[in-house]
Nucleic acid binder design. Structure first.
Lengths: 230, 230
DNA sequence: TGTACATCAGTGAACGCGCGTTCACTGATGTAC
DNA sequence: TGTACATCAGTGAACGCGCGTTCACTGATGTAC
């Protein structure tokens, strides 16, 4: 125990500095964007020699990867808890809550949002480690859609046939019908399209009340998808 | 005449090199992204001294501005001609044609699309010169929406009241009702959201046939907005 | 048509800067006996 | 508990590189008479 406690003395310092490096990197991100993220600037910000950072992240790209993973995890967690706080059968409510949670996180972490949902960083190829975390937020919305598809009482949803010739979708959710998947994807794309447009300034001389318009959009597309309220 | 012809000898060379510089810059864009666009690399690409480029563009940012303006103009022109080739009263057809034109241009000019609709370049502030060109493509879709709103026979569109407390939209199209504007904006956002998601790889393990899914989305949202076919 | 001058395009060297990454090092922290 | 050794964190100098921008210059093109 004494041994492990003293080991933590060092390793706790390590964890802390790792966290501080990532925080400084996030600050950097806000100033210069992902393409301009620089290890030297991060080190400077923390009063470290630039070479010291290499004890924590073996390269600039690995630091970027860590930021990406953290961002996916953070937004995923937000969506999960927002969803979890709703009555299970209030499917429209769950959708709205999760959508608002994603937007709220995006507004509070604009540059991390841009990192994961904006233009890909040129020359950077995301390693597989980012895949799991990226699927957290996807999982929340897929679960909502699955729940809606299972509960039969959807009013808005007309069951139309799609895709005569070839499959339209990859088999990532084989238990959901293509028609439902198509509508769900439209909602998903509208959600992230709205957030991106707002964040990137394309609604600047268009929408006055972004909160209200976002909620309106999300409610309407939920109706369109046929998500039943409680 | 002789004078003006001989003046063109020099100024025509000037125009040509200006064009070539922009082309080289576009190639650069594809490799390193907008944040990494470098005058020196452009000059190198053309076999010029780096200082020579300054005879054509007074700074890196002015070159970026020129690329942005060209991109907006190009995508605007595509949308305009696609729209113009449709029967005036086939409003759903015009929407679909213009949407496809925008997507087609985006797929053929991925990095220019990212330049104008992706994450904003950090540290770059678009001058007012870009505003006009940016409104070309907007104008096409606004005209379509206006035409739809004027022709009364829209089936899908329920006329609901919006925004009890405060105005939802800036008065950029005061002749169109808020309810119509809201639906039109949803379609607009879905259009660009779809293109961005496709281009940035977020549909990679999701959609098999991007052409088909895009068309499906655009048809459905047109129905939702209530755009009448001919 | 021919000459004298003005304009302009492109050169190459230089400025000061920041970057990612490596490496031999010092000194502190942890471990085994 | 105390000592001898191993591990690890952080330093500072150095590597080679590319960047945007300026400037005095040469030589070609255009203009006025």
């Amino acid at each position: 125990m004494v041994t492990s406690a003293s080991r933590t003395a060092r390793s706790r310092a390590r964890e802390e500095l790792t966290r501080e490096i990532k925080l400084a990197a996030q600050r950097q991100l806000a100033e210069v964007g992902s393409a301009g993220l620089s290890l030297r600037a991060v080190a400077r910000d923390l009063g470290l020699a630039s070479s010291a950072v290499y004890r924590y992240f073996p390269s600039r790209d690995e630091l970027l990867t860590a930021l990406i993973i953290d961002a996916f995890d953070a937004v995923g967690a937000e969506a999960e808890t927002a969803d979890a706080n709703c009555a299970r059968d209030d499917i429209a409510g769950r959708w709205l809550a999760a959508a608002k949670a994603v937007r709220g996180w995006a507004l509070a972490h604009r540059h991390e949002y841009a990192l994961i949902y904006g233009t890909p960083v040129p020359g950077y190829h995301a390693p597989l480690d980012t895949l799991g975390p990226s699927q957290r937020v996807t999982g929340v919305f897929l679960a909502i859609l699955r729940h809606a598809a299972a509960s039969g009482d959807r009013e808005g949803a007309t069951h139309d046939r799609l895709a005569e010739r070839q499959p339209l979708f990859e088999p990532f959710a084989p238990d959901i019908e293509d028609a439902d998947l198509a509508r769900g994807l439209m909602a998903w794309i509208l959600l992230f399209g709205s957030i991106s447009f707002e964040l990137f300034g394309h609604l600047h001389n268009v929408v006055v009340d972004n909160d209200a318009f976002f909620e309106l959009e999300m409610r309407r597309i939920a109706e369109y998808v046929g998500l039943p309220a409680a």
